[in-house]
Amino acid sequence: MFKGVSLLLMLLCSCAVAAQNWPAEQWAPGPPGSGPALAALEDYAFASRDEATRKGIRTDALLVIRDGQLVYERYAGGTTADTPHLTWSVSKSLMAAVLGVAYGEGRFSLQDKVAKFLPAMVPHPEISFADLLHWASGLDWQEDYEYAPLNSSVVAMLYTRGHTDMAGFTAAHPAFGAPGQHFRYSSGDSNLLSAALKNILGAQRYADYPWTALFDPLGIRSAVWERDATGTFVASSYAYMTARDLARIGLLMQRQGRWGERQLLPADWVAFNLQPFAHYQANQDAAVPGGHWWLNRSVDGAPRPWPDAPPDSFAALGHWGQALYVLPAEKLVIVRYADDRDGSYRHNELLKRVQAAFPPQVLP
């Protein structure tokens, strides 16, 4: 009897996988939204654009995928469906996905010390890959932007004395605490991961690895990724792709690293990405850090960062309003590109309006 039940369950699971929508060269269209809820979403996301002051919500692209189908797409500000848009710190989560493929190939473990692969990290022998992925290296890094450029480690890394060798610049920072104990958001940590991967793979294979390992299997054709003078991808900031292509990364993560019949990212890697950093203290930031992704989780009894979204929601987030949201419970992937400058945009508000405009389909 149990053998028969098990066989039935296997067949049902196989049918469920087969019934999933997977994009081919283009996304298949799904049922579009309409009515007051869609109008309310557009009123929020695409308010009148002030090009003189650059104030207010300035969405360049908004794309919604429901269960693998494209149900909404709109562009503004010169961005089109064919524009590889700068993702800023969404690049960090892209590098996490690239690293996930290498992890699945057995090239490193989360507890490996980065100094094993990156000589510049020898002065910091206890920092592990997991520490860097949690932005918890313990290095004394200042992630300040336009409002405090003179004190900013990231501005110096990207634009002045550190820009030729970003990982080397980061590794030269002193420690402020023990690795793995304190969350301190750091673009430098992301670039250390990128440089370590280069040494793991060798420079020749590394040069096209994001494409051969991740982008090509997903059908991503628009990706551009800038490098520093050492040939290291700037994992912190400088990946570009169209909104439709970025949505493919979201669908991969929504489906636990699976793409069609292939488990592209190991399930335990995705689980690590989506587990809150154990030493994170609530209210330090707008979302809870996981393994180079941002989570909508309650930590220490604090409210969830996006209370109107399901608790399993997560995102890749970038400067000036770039966002890739994944809402597994709703089977939604949302891409937003933007040119926000004044902090008026709210993640929760957009997510609330998208869910209202594109509710789950009720099967007859």
Rank of each mutant, 00 (worst) to 15 (best):
E51K: 05
G78P: 09
T230A: 11
V154S: 02
V64P: 02
V98F: 06
G260M: 02
G30T: 00
S190I: 06
E126A: 14
F46L: 07
S190D: 13
Y206C: 04
P23Y: 00
Y209N: 03
R341Y: 04
S48M: 12
R107F: 01
F215Y: 13
V234E: 04
E105P: 04
R66Q: 10
A316Q: 01
K113E: 10
P23A: 02
G231E: 09
Q256Y: 02
A309G: 02
A81K: 14
Q284H: 11
D342P: 06
Y337V: 05
G202L: 05
V335N: 03
S153C: 04
D342N: 11
V155P: 00
T232A: 04
R49D: 13
T80H: 01
L274D: 08
L9R: 06
L62V: 12
P266N: 06
A28V: 12
E126S: 13
G4N: 11
R262D: 09
G250Q: 02
A97L: 05
G177E: 11
A130P: 06
D308A: 12
T80C: 05
I65G: 01
D228K: 01
P23Q: 03
A175W: 07
F46I: 09
S109C: 08
G77S: 12
A278F: 07
A40P: 05
A302H: 07
S236F: 07
N199M: 08
A81M: 10
G68F: 02
L201Y: 02
A39H: 14
T170F: 09
T87G: 05
S109W: 09
L317E: 09
M95Y: 05
V155M: 13
Y337H: 15
A97T: 12
F272G: 02
P36D: 06
L9Y: 07
L7N: 13
V101A: 10
V71H: 07
Q281H: 15
V122M: 12
V288S: 03
G180N: 06
L118I: 03
S6I: 08
D144W: 13
S93D: 00
A52T: 14
W22S: 02
T212M: 09
R297Q: 15
G202Q: 06
A39N: 14
Y147D: 15
A247S: 09
F277V: 09
L62E: 13
S186K: 07
Q204F: 08
L94W: 03
F129W: 11
N21R: 11
M95D: 06
F169E: 04
V71K: 08
